[in-house]
Amino acid sequence: MSAHTHNDHGHAHADAGHDHGGGLQMGHHHVSSAAMFFNVLAILLVLTIVTVAVSRFDFGGANMLIAMGIASVKASLVIAIFMHMKWDTAINKIVFLSSFLFLSLLFIFTLADQATRRVDHEMHTTRTPVDKQWVHPSTLEKH
């Protein structure tokens, strides 16, 4: 995405350099070219087709990974280009991206608890389906 241009803005505060993230920079000068926006849209639409097409095949456990991978690429494009994050100040980048970091904490611990609870049950407690009548565990163990 290095091909972006920013020459078509009639901006009062136009400055020379675009060393992004500088604290005293305006940071909002960047006007992306219409062509780039259109290219990004095209890529997004292609990726939508890809994700639909891929979902017609079953890759087992990888289904979720593939779909989330494509979605993440799409999301990154939207964030970086449409939302101008690529040219935004460092602090704004940190703020927005840290929300994903903290969200991942919620995901990791909650899902890890769920995943390892099963291991727990197999390890050292008696696994007794609740829907069934209570059966004495000693009889369960015989099966």
Partner: peptide, 23 residues
């Protein structure tokens, strides 16, 4: 810059709000 930082922070809260549903 103040407004924009404030709004990015707000968007971060939106991400976490939806994050609960995704979790």
């Amino acid at each position: 810059q103040s407004m924009k930082l404030g709004f990015w922070l707000f968007l971060a809260t939106e991400i976490l709000l939806f994050g609960g549903l995704f979790a």
